[in-house]
């Protein structure tokens, strides 16, 4: 069985008034995620991808269908904390998820809730801060940090709980390019070096490209999934679902449309340049 097993999941938000129907956001969605995977969940705003974030750790409970994490059904309330310590959540706004006014005390918040002995908390906090490269800032006030740094502290706060999986809900949407790079770098390292399962919810294509698997969502359903190459070569499909492809991919796609024989699964500028120069050399 997979680490996370979502089967035939339906979820909707409660109606605000009586004459309004329940707004169903997720329709019969099935998805399995293996331990150690890096999955990007891609979709436009309102596609249901952020709702999924809270379904993975039992913050929301399925209306029908099941979400099973590490063999535990999220609908079982007695397992609530067991599930949450295994699946951490990082939200979009870095300002709104830090609790304490000193970095290391914020990171300690989770382990303190788990009731761990002080020495254990101390060592987890130090390790977590080192893992996101924020150890030097341990006694700073969060509000003086940059967006990228705050987001890394939030990630450290989750790591200190020693989760098997981290779900990140648009963690870079409010950051500048430097902050985005910092956060993406951190995510990649955690996945590669610590083997933490990553579920990255985003609408940035260049971030999704870094994942091992991309799952595209639209109106609460999975439209397509596969490796970034497989998914991004379907330019037509992505555009239909209000998504974007990297400019390099778009260029190749449109060259193909003009009858020039280039591969469709080019994702970055280097590959694109090599491909085009090779094409000319071959012909010459």
């Amino acid at each position: 069985m997979s680490f996370i097993e979502v089967s035939d999941l339906c979820f909707g938000y409660a109606a605000e008034s009586e004459d309004e129907a329940v707004r169903e956001v997720i329709h019969h969605l099935s998805l399995s995620i293996e331990e150690g995977e890096f999955v990007a969940l891609l979709g436009h705003n309102g596609s249901g991808k952020s709702t999924m974030a809270k379904l993975f750790n039992g913050m929301y409970l399925p209306q029908s269908g099941r979400v099973v994490v590490d063999g535990m059904d999220t609908a079982d309330e007695s397992l609530q904390f067991e599930i949450r310590r295994r699946v951490g959540l990082v939200q979009q706004n870095p300002d709104n998820q830090l609790v304490a006014s000193i970095v290391e005390e914020d990171v300690a918040f989770g382990p303190e809730n788990l009731g761990l002995p002080p020495a254990e908390i101390r060592s987890r906090v130090d390790q977590a801060l080192k893992a996101v490269d924020m150890y030097e800032y341990r006694d700073h006030a969060p509000f003086k940090l940059s967006g990228g740094q705050k987001q890394r502290v939030a990630i450290a706060g989750v790591i200190a709980m020693e989760p098997k999986c981290i779900v990140l809900d648009e963690p870079t949407a409010m950051l500048d390019p430097r902050g985005r790079d910092e956060v993406m770098q951190t995510i990649r390292t955690l996945n590669r070096e610590k083997g933490i399962t990553i579920i990255l919810i985003t609408h940035y294509m260049d971030e999704a490209v870094q994942a091992g698997r991309v799952v595209v969502m639209n109106s609460g359903e999975i439209v397509t999934q596969g490796t970034p190459r497989e998914v991004f070569s379907q330019v037509e499909l992505l555009k239909r679902h209000k998504l974007d492809v990297p400019q390099a991919t778009e260029l190749m796609y449109r060259l193909r449309g003009a009858g020039i024989d280039v591969p469709a699964d080019i994702l970055d500028s280097e590959a694109c340049i090599e491909c085009l120069s090779a094409l000319c050399k071959k012909e010459a």
């Binding site: 400019q247 260029l251 449109r254 060259l255 003009a258 085009l276 094409l279 012909e283 010459a284």
Partner: peptide
């Protein structure tokens, strides 16, 4: 790398306008 394209291209459309005729000619 010797492609006869402008010094600075800003959009995919501009790139296509330059590349398509050239690549077709080369091929």
């Amino acid at each position: 790398r010797g492609f006869p394209v402008d010094e600075s291209t800003l959009t995919v459309e501009e790139a296509l306008r330059q590349l398509i005729p050239y690549l077709k000619g080369e091929i």
